[in-house]
Computed example of a mutant assay.
Amino acid sequence: MATGATGFSDLAYDLISVQYHGLKDGHDLDRYVKDAETAGEEDIADFFRAVMQEDAARARRCHEFLSRLTHDGAGGPAIGGESAAGGRDTGTDEGSPIVAGPESRERSAVTR
């Protein structure tokens, strides 16, 4: 499988790109639906809603494919591949605390 300059397969990058744009477009389309409703153009609002559903379906499908690549270990370092050090990439730096929210920040500051 071809690998891009990032170390990820071109296929994983392509899927991530399609997923990102579908989700971002869905966010923008919500505003378009409201604009059409404000203008009293319900058929145009319905059109934008349909496009949103199509984008969401595409994003879900990309997620399914990315999950498969992750499971197969074929996606790249962050998608089930090997880290630069040669071990399995877990997505965390050993020894550094994972910070989830304000209360975690307070706890991790105490443990440092």
Rank of each mutant, 00 (worst) to 15 (best):
L11H: 05
D25N: 12
G75F: 04
P77Q: 09
G101P: 03
M52F: 05
D10E: 06
Q53N: 15
V18G: 02
A57L: 11
F47K: 09
A78G: 13
R112F: 04
G7E: 10
R31I: 11
R107V: 13
P97G: 00
D43N: 11
A84H: 14
G4D: 13
T38E: 09
P77D: 05
S67T: 14
Q53D: 14
I44D: 01
Q53M: 15
L69F: 00
S9D: 00
S83M: 08
D43Q: 10
R105H: 09
K24Q: 13
Y13E: 11
M52A: 03
D28G: 11
Y20P: 01
R112A: 07
G87D: 12
Y13D: 06
D46R: 14
L23E: 13
G86S: 06
I98N: 15
A39K: 13
R60Y: 05
I98Q: 11
L11N: 02
A109D: 10
V110F: 05
Y20T: 13
E42A: 10
G22D: 09
R49P: 01
L29M: 14
V99K: 10
A57E: 13
R112V: 08
E82L: 13
V33C: 06
L66H: 06
Y13N: 02
D28Q: 10
D89I: 03
Y32L: 14
D93C: 12
A57G: 12
V33Q: 08
R60M: 12
Y20H: 11
A5N: 07
R107G: 01
L66N: 07
L15H: 01
I16H: 09
M52I: 14
G73V: 01
D55Q: 09
S17E: 06
I79Y: 00
R68G: 02
D72V: 01
